[in-house]
Write a protein that binds this DNA or RNA. Sequence first.
DNA 1: CTGTATCCTTAGGGATACTG
DNA 2: CAGTATCCCTAAGGATACAG
Lengths: 150, 150
Amino acid sequence: MAKTDKPNWNGCPVRYAAGIFGDKWCFILLRDTLLRGKRSYSEFLDAGEGISTNILASRLVRLEEAGMLIRKIDPRKGSRVCYFPTQKARALLPAFLGMVVWAIEFDEETEAPDGFAAGFLENPTGTVARISAQIDQINRDILGDAADAL
Amino acid sequence: MAKTDKPNWNGCPVRYAAGIFGDKWCFILLRDTLLRGKRSYSEFLDAGEGISTNILASRLVRLEEAGMLIRKIDPRKGSRVCYFPTQKARALLPAFLGMVVWAIEFDEETEAPDGFAAGFLENPTGTVARISAQIDQINRDILGDAADAL
DNA sequence: CTGTATCCTTAGGGATACTG
DNA sequence: CAGTATCCCTAAGGATACAG
């Protein structure tokens, strides 16, 4: 029997994933950074989900420690702090968008942007690249060339 | 600006997904059904994660209500109950495996089966089909032809 | 074997006041 | 603006006994 027939991972990747977004708030924050262009504390706070300040702070720390976010002062305005998605977080985009497509298909209440699901299924790599480019753009708007170092 | 540039979903697909597996135990149970061939209460209980009986029962109900699992008596042994992953659950496989690949890449403790990640990246559809076939096989072993009705 | 029912403890998290 | 610090309370969940 091949090794893949009966996966018996010691360090289980699913448990690892569960540790990171087997939590409602982390899940939502990842959405906000990856898909909604949110970067600052106040933007997360006003995302409309009603997260309270202490919880938000704790999740930002958790995601930073998990290597999903990088905390940086906004060079345009020193009092502003921004959280940027790391490469690790962005590497999650294919899976993340896969979930979005899945939810669009199975949740009746979900209203998807026109053609989004179809576009992803036809060309996942292209869709990921497009959204990744949007993320880049947002980061460059804030950090300029320093965004390259993310 | 195209509609997809600024997704502003009313019924948010990410929140929907978070509602279903933005929970450690549901996440683990989905792993057990989709990737580890577990079907019965006792199998879930002995999966080594230390879930207690009341929590397991509550999550099985939750996943059944969410349309992710179907509860059926094992025709081979009447006292045995099995939970089968629905099409909806199996439709999650691409995204789920995407997460597995992601975890394999970023979690140092994860030990992946040989070539699993590479195989998925080269041919996601094929990998999904292969695992889906394994799921089918397990279901048929239990239900016989009745598995077709799942 | 597949669950309920109960007890009990702790962690999660909402509200809110406060701080650099 | 970006958090900390408390308070308080509920819900989650572990342990375990029991039941159909």
